[in-house]
Each structure stands twice: as C-alpha cells, then as structure tokens.
Simulated scan of single mutants.
Amino acid sequence: MEAPIGVIDSGVGGLTVAKEIMRLLPNEKIYYIGDTARCPYGPRPRHEVRNFTWQMAKALERKGIKLLVIACNTATAVALHSLQKYFSVPVIGVVNPGARAAIKNTKRHEVAVLATRGTVESGAYEEAIASLSSSTHVVPLACPTFVPLVESGEYKSSVARGIVHEGLKPLRDESFDTVILGCTHYPILQHYIEEVVGEHVTVLSSAEETAKDVQEILAQRGELAIGTPQHKFFATGSVPIFKDIAEDWLKLEQTEVARIKLTSSD
C-alpha cells in the first residue's frame, strides 16, 4: 500500500525515529510534521500538548496516511490513548518501544530515563517499564536544556558538550547500567551522553523498536509498500533550519520541506 506513514513531533527530534523507519523500511513514504514554532513541548501544560498533537495528527489524516507514529515522548504520554480511540488507522507512540528496549538490555535491572520535564512528570516510563519488569529500578532525569540545543542546530557546536555534561550531573551518584533516551531529540546528542555515563553503560533510543512496531503492524495488515518513496516534511517554524537539520541527520541530498500552519480547527 503506497499511502504514507505519518510521523509527528514537537520539532526535529522525531527525525531520529523517521531515520530508523527509512532504514528498516526503505520503500515506505513518510510524511512528517515538526511543530518547531511551538517546541519544546516538555514544559507545556498537558492539555496544550494534547491539543497540539491532535492538530498535527488530523492534518496528516487529511493527507491519507496509513499509520501514525507519535515520535515525541511528551506527546505520547498525554495523547496516545485518545488518538488510538479516534483514528481508523493504527497509532503508535515511542514510550512502550523505549521501555521494551531498556528491559531487553539491562542486566542489573537499573535504568536511567532521560526525558523532558513533561515526560518525567507523567510517570509514563515508570509505568511502561513496571508493566514489563516489576523488579527494575528507574532513575528519571529531566534535561530541559537538551531540546532547545538540538532545535537551534547548535548540537555540533563547541558549547553542546558542556551543556550535556552539565545537564547530566545529577546522575553522578546514581546506579544504572542502561540509559533510555526518553526524548527523540536526545539521540542527536548521544555521543556526548555516552561520554558522561561511560562505556560500561548502554545508551538506547526508542527509534529501532518503534520502527520494528511499524514494520510488524503494516505486515500484518498487508500494507507494506513496494515503490520508491518521496518523503514530505512540514514545519510550523523556520523551514531553512528544519531543512538543514533534516538533511544533516537523514543524509538526504534533496529534502522537500514546506511550511504548515496548524490551527484549532485542524
């Protein structure tokens, strides 16, 4: 089925999930919306995040998607279940795949979760991990400086390393053998995060497990594509900044990016 897969995020972070879907399913077409004008979602009230997420989802629904990925942990925590009830196509988030990845890899049942304030306060990862392993201890840490760093495009600059090291200081006295990057922006900073936690700690994102879920669902529904995809990206904020980051992260030479306006009527 040649209909696109829809991917939504508060900004550019969901590109880490899109990249893994492209790698695993190279024939699939992706339509992506990044709400860069209103990013970050982490500090926002839950009702506001839910409203923004619905706006993006309905905009992609009108473009005829066959599956929707909420590639934002904060949005997943507050809007996944309501969207699953409403939409006729499958809707998946990134929290449960992230929790699965952590449980698969932890040896000591000690997992640190790096996320936005909104995701940490939701308790979504503690709940998801507890449903898989009641014996696993979770150390949550909000990292509010990380998303703005990525969205600005400064993640390759000399200041990025210092910001990441400073943001992870609270982990110094904690015990864990696995880190789950509970925000899809954070894999773009993964090499700096690995510097801090050390080579004995496994650092994971939810992207790979999420892409596997997409593949499994589409295969079960007989909807896997066979053509040559033409991806489309939409941003509510700066198109040039989004385009630069998308081309850098996805390694695409020609990226079709358009401005999109989302309103409460969407």
Rank of each mutant, 00 (worst) to 15 (best):
G167Y: 09
E223P: 01
G227N: 05
D9L: 01
F146Q: 02
T74K: 06
E28C: 01
V147W: 10
A235Q: 07
K169A: 13
T76P: 01
A77L: 11
I103Q: 02
G118R: 01
L262V: 00
E154V: 00
G153A: 08
E110A: 07
K66T: 10
T202M: 09
I5D: 02
A225D: 10
A101F: 00
A124N: 04
E256C: 07
I33Q: 08
V239W: 14
T178P: 11
T106N: 00
Y86D: 14
S158E: 13
I92L: 14
E223A: 13
L204R: 03
I188M: 13
P90K: 02
E151N: 09
A3R: 09
F233I: 02
R108C: 03
R46G: 00
A3M: 05
H81Y: 04
R117Q: 15
L171Q: 11
K251G: 00
G162T: 13
T236G: 07
H47C: 08
E247H: 05
E208C: 00
Y31A: 01
S175V: 15
K63F: 07
A71H: 08
I241C: 05
P240K: 06
I92R: 06
K63W: 08
P4D: 02
G227F: 11
N96L: 13
V7T: 03
Q254P: 00
A59I: 01
D173V: 00
I21D: 08
P240E: 12
S122G: 10
V138F: 09
S131K: 15
I65Q: 02
V69A: 05
R259K: 15
L189F: 12
D35M: 10
H200R: 13
E208A: 01
G34Y: 04
F176Q: 09
T210D: 08
I5C: 08
K169I: 12
G13L: 05
C183Y: 04
K63I: 07
Y192P: 09
P97V: 03
E121Q: 12
I5G: 01
H200C: 00
N105P: 00
V12E: 04
G98M: 05
S134M: 08
R117L: 14
L83M: 11
I30N: 08
R46K: 15
L80H: 11
D173H: 14
K261A: 11
R259H: 15
S135N: 15
K212E: 04
S82P: 00
T228P: 00
K107M: 04
R50L: 14
I226M: 06
T53P: 05
G42Q: 06
A258Y: 15
S175L: 14
A225V: 02
H81M: 09
G123Y: 12
S10P: 12
K232G: 03
P148K: 11
H109G: 00
L15Q: 04
K243V: 02
S122K: 02
L15K: 02
I65R: 06
W54R: 14
V91M: 11
S134H: 06
A130R: 10
L168N: 06
T106R: 01
V197E: 09
H185I: 14
E154M: 14
T202H: 12
T210W: 09
H231L: 09
L189T: 09
N51G: 00
Q55N: 12
Q190L: 07
L132W: 12
V257R: 11
L68S: 04
A225G: 01
D177P: 05
L149F: 13
K66N: 05
G167H: 09
T136H: 04
